[in-house]
Write a protein that binds this DNA or RNA. Structure first.
Length: 576
RNA sequence: GCGCUUGUAGCUCAACUGGAUAGAGCGCCUGACUUCGGAUCAGGAGGUUCUGGGUUCGACUCCUAGCAGGCGCACCA
């Protein structure tokens, strides 16, 4: 139930009828006709730009046109309390009490899906995290993880089918280095050999000691003397160990993937060859040379013939290599194979969440998906920007190589899952995020999460006082309310919720949800405090009774906060 | 050099997918606790939306040319 959308439909019906009656001339399409909420300072409920849009084709000023339209609307719509023209050409409408009664009742009766649009349902695959299985997640991964999870939640809230997937890069050189590092940690433990900390290819982090210990403990019969003999076996063990660390991190963050897809399996199943054959047939793959980038040091550049994907056909600046000089596949090649399996699984839309340092990768992978599927915009990529960690007012640098970074475990332990999620989500994903560790920890009162949770807790406290359970369905016999202007202000905000969800979902911008919830909470807190001076504005009267008007209002606000926080994956405690 | 991305109040960020006088938080100044929970509220100061052009009835938003920061640029993933 989106009141703006409903009104737009109504409006268009009315003006189309007026066209038939030769009262108006309509332009070819009415796409630019909008029905919006009014800015807060304007004391109306909704506004439309229709008279500005129609001004030109009718050769009239918006003002003159508005006079005609206002008369039409007054005649056709019984819910209008007040309607007027405002410069530069808006028509503002205020609804009558009856309208808002119906509105409140509708929200209460549709409490589980208020704001869920359910139109244009699709089947989505969301790939996110996909961090190399070489160790636990760090704070940087965390933002993308939460982003992917909440985008999935949003799409599910709008009744789409969503699969969450993790692509496990368990194949290339980095994994081999990682595996060898685990091996050396095992030798360190078993044969008392020092780990070579100066080798930049190796992973020195302390967690490898834990992995090594665990492998030793669980494989007592294995002889670790010769690396070559056990390399492949050990690789499996190492990957399983580090994936378990990652999975635990994800659980701590409240995230659960449906599938983990292994790169090694794709390679072993010859999926890469299959897709390359397919792309050769469509002339998107050829053998050729790539030029060195200009302006960079290319003294080490050796031009050579190699298998290339023609991504320049799709607007990329150069074609991309599929095969390394040793004739093994590049990361890109197996990712092409992976995306081919995605396309074959018949999803309507694919979504990838990438880290900021992989943004340059987007063009080639969307190109490949277009080449395979023949569909433009089949795959959309979202980049999660860096998280700048700040500790005691100073930037805190991380290095995965040095094993010197804040883990998700630290983060959750110190800040908490809910605060982490809420803060990381409250900024647009393509803006860098300052995450001040000490601030979030110490001054938790300044945290916007608590502002929203507190709003919910206050509502719960009223329910407790009148011996009602917030979780129960609200039963009001006589569903007629008499809201004051202060209360209507909150309902007006509540009416914007479906639009917030719709935009957040269409643009894949979940930060709109926490921003909205904060605003809604703000309206509520403001009203609450008016009760200090004005007894009529308190929810509970002297006799510990509550009016139906106020009870319904509380229920409406609580419903939206609950739904919103659920999308964010954040709790709404009844007491704080 | 090329590509992507960001630039809004002192700081951190929003801005309803082109709308009205650009809004919050923090910080600064002033005020409200015997309360349905002060983790809250009311008010004040604070702006050339990086710059120049363009499209539009209308631009923070779109186009274009710059400026500044970030990320990336074969045989890593």
């Amino acid at each position: 139930m989106n009141i703006f959308e409903e009104y737009k439909k109504k409006l268009i019906t009315i003006i189309k009828k007026a066209e038939k009656d030769k009262l108006l001339i309509l332009p070819e399409n009415l796409n630019s006709v909008n029905v919006d909420s009014t800015p807060p300072k304007i004391d109306f409920d909704i506004s439309t730009n229709v008279s500005m849009v129609l001004a030109k084709p009718n050769n009239k000023s918006p003002n003159d046109l508005a006079k005609v339209l206002i008369e039409l609307l007054k005649k056709e719509d019984k819910h209008i309390d007040e309607i007027s023209f405002a410069k530069p050409g808006f028509i503002n409408i205020k609804f009558n009490k009856n309208y808002w009664n119906n509105f409140a009742n509708k929200i209460i009766s549709s409490s589980h899906n208020y704001g869920s649009s359910g139109k244009d349902k699709k089947k989505y695959l969301v790939e996110f995290v996909s961090a190399n299985p070489t160790g636990p997640l760090h704070v940087g991964h965390c933002r993308g993880a939460i982003l992917g999870d909440v985008i999935s939640n949003l799409l599910q809230f709008n009744q789409n089918i969503v699969e969450r997937e993790y692509y496990v890069n368990d194949h290339g050189n980095q994994i081999s280095h990682f595996n060898y590092s685990v091996y050396l940690r095992i030798r360190e433990k078993l044969y008392d050999e020092k780990f070579p900390l100066d080798n930049p290819d190796l992973y020195p982090g302390d967690y490898l000691k834990d992995i090594a210990n665990s492998i030793i403990k669980n494989n007592k019969d294995t002889n670790f003397q010769n690396f070559k003999d056990i390399e492949n076996h050990l690789k499996k063990l190492s990957i399983t160990e580090s994936l378990n660390l990652i999975k635990q991190n994800l659980i701590d963050l409240g995230i659960k993937h449906d599938n983990f897809v292994s790169e090694t399996n794709l390679v072993n199943d010859k999926e890469v060859e299959k897709v390359i054959e397919k792309l050769k047939e469509s002339k998107h793959v050829y053998t050729g040379k790539i030029k060195a980038p200009e302006g960079e040091d290319n003294s080490k550049w050796t031009e050579r013939e190699q298998l290339l994907f023609k991504s320049t056909d799709f607007g990329d600046d150069k074609d991309r290599a599929l095969q390394k000089s040793d004739l093994t596949w590049t990361y890109f090649a197996s990712d092409v194979a992976y995306h081919n399996t995605k396309v074959n699984r018949n999803f309507d839309k694919l979504i990838n969440i990438l880290g900021a340092d992989h943004a340059g990768y987007i063009k080639r992978i969307t190109s490949v998906v277009e080449a395979i599927s023949g569909e433009k915009n089949k795959l959309s990529c979202k980049v999660s920007q860096l998280v700048k960690l700040i500790k005691d007012g100073k930037p805190f640098k991380m290095s995965k190589r040095k094993g010197d970074y804040i883990t998700v475990e630290d983060l959750i332990e110190q800040v908490g899952k809910d605060a982490t999620r809420f803060i990381m989500l409250s900024r647009s994903n393509d803006v860098e995020l300052d995450f001040d560790f000490s601030k979030v920890k110490e001054k938790s009162k300044d945290n916007p999460l608590y502002y929203v949770q507190y709003c919910y807790a206050r509502i719960c406290s009223v329910f407790r006082n009148i011996k009602l359970n917030i979780k129960d369905e609200l039963k009001i016999k006589n569903q007629i309310y008499n809201y004051t202007n202060d209360e209507l202000k909150i309902l007006k905000k509540a009416s914007e919720w479906p639009r917030c969800v719709e935009i957040a979902s269409n643009k894949l911008e979940p930060h709109r949800i926490p921003v909205y919830l904060y605003e809604l909470s703000s309206e509520f807190h403001s009203y609450w405090n008016k009760g200090k001076d004005d007894v009529d504005k308190r929810f509970i009267d002297k006799n510990n009774k509550i009016s139906d008007d106020k009870l319904a209002l509380l229920k409406v606000v609580s419903i939206i906060i609950k739904l919103g926080m659920k999308i964010l994956g954040v709790n709404t405690p009844e007491k704080m």
